[in-house]
Write a protein that binds this DNA or RNA. Structure first.
Lengths: 252, 252
DNA sequence: ATCATTTTGAAAAAATTTAACAAAAGGAGC
DNA sequence: GCTCCTTTTGTTAAATTTTTTCAAAATGAT
């Protein structure tokens, strides 16, 4: 019972790389915080995790990123992004073929994604590296100039790039959304790339965490009517939900 | 002053593996605890340490503790690769524009490369991530299918890809070399990509650690006459050195 | 030399972590 | 099944660490 729980904790920390105590409490609602703390202590003794402020991180995670630079994960709206990623992961079918952007939410999705046979196009190199750990996925990186802030690539040559590629689904996220300005991001080439992607894809799933609503970024790449499914978190305001639904967007 | 202190802190933490704030205060008696905290925060952002309760620990240390999976790969002839990388780093000039492959040696080079203004094309996503840390480099990722074993991309569409790109220098490494079979690797698309690169580049620097000499891989992408400079380690046999020099290759 | 920006220090405020002890749960032996 | 003993767990309070805040000092550019 105890042993089992500790195993579960280790596993979940390995998978997510990092867990706050708060998150662990949500995962294990029937034990107290103190018990979880004691479990973490033991896992630290076993050398499987490193306890940090507010939680713990996986030793494996640190080792994994050893080749590259270990980049601190952004903690902004972590929970929301995770929830969205988990929802999105459930929508991916074995054998499918889709485009995934290079954002933070996509990073979470990469981790949550089961190791199924599927083919993924991405413009995020961190996403690509994460996906590379899976055995059954086929990954294609869209080349182009690297934007250091989000580790994504974008290139005006995307059009030629996609000429011989096919994917029926695009899963992307925006950095800002308003009903008037639609979905926007802060890079023109990225915006262009996404437009190309949308032309190719038959279906578009938009991952949008609620903190992005009401914000505007310089480059709009899509409007409500361009997407088929909106994946968001619990805090999505009702009026937005109905707005999307009125436009025939499935809100999850 | 600040930068220097942060460097010192990083060094001492790397050296000892772990430092409490209390210990750091003794090491740096003329700054306040708060300053040290802020320094640690920054080092964490840079990915060099992990802050834990009461202090911080070195990321390197964590990797050492039980890091066999990834480290295994990188310890084969590590010294040789580092030496080669350091030699290569000295050859890079400010403002230059070059192609760098995605191999392990290139990874070392990325780390050794000074943060100078230059433009780099690469097909290695781990290399790209490493380079992304530098402020002054411009990075372009060559897209294509991702090979999970070496985290490199390659695509038959490379030709079109390079159509509008220019670089005068290519810095690559081979996984095998014999005088008869030339430089070879074990992926056909990678081999094709490198041939394209060689057509574009005016000069080619080959990084070859001595352990690769005498080995043959399935796909040859270059011969002695195709390269201009050979960067190797101390264990390069003399007969090979003269062989290269006879073919007008500069051996470093 | 002056102004703006960055860095630093001190103390208060806000956490999180540890400690302590009692209650509950398991388990061995009869 | 029951008792005793050990292990595990939960609650609360105490200790400690971390973060925040704001003003002073240092730095650097014009």
């Amino acid at each position: 019972m105890k042993r089992e729980r500790i195993e579960d904790i280790a596993e979940i920390i390995d998978k997510r790389g990092k867990m706050t105590l708060e998150q662990l409490e949500k995962e294990f609602p029937n034990v107290s915080q103190m018990t979880l703390r004691r479990d973490l202590y033991q896992l630290e003794e076993d050398g499987r995790i490193i306890r940090v402020r507010c939680g713990a991180m996986s030793v494996k995670e640190v080792q994994k990123v050893s080749g590259e630079a270990y980049v601190k994960k952004t903690t902004i709206n972590t929970d929301a992004k995770l929830i969205i990623a988990q929802k999105a992961a459930k929508l991916i079918e074995e054998g499918s073929c889709f485009f995934l952007d290079g954002g933070t939410t996509a990073m979470y999705l990469s981790k949550e994604l089961p190791d199924i046979n599927c083919s993924i196009f991405t413009n995020g190199i961190a996403v690509a590296m994460e996906l590379a750990q899976k055995k059954n996925t086929q990954i294609t990186v869209v080349g182009g100039q690297l934007m250091k802030d989000n580790l994504s690539t974008a290139s005006p040559a995307a059009k030629e790039y996609f000429a011989a590629s096919n994917f029926e689904l695009a899963i992307v996220s925006a950095t800002a959304f308003t009903p008037e300005n639609g979905f926007s991001c802060n890079s023109q080439t990225e915006s262009d790339l996404l437009r190309q992607v949308f032309q190719k894809a038959r279906h578009v799933y938009m991952m949008l965490d609620s903190s992005k609503i009401g914000k505007i970024n310089p480059f709009t790449f899509a409007h409500i009517k361009d997407i088929d499914v909106l994946i968001s978190d619990d805090k999505l305001p009702k009026e937005y939900k109905t707005l999307f639904e009125e436009n025939e967007v499935v809100v999850i």
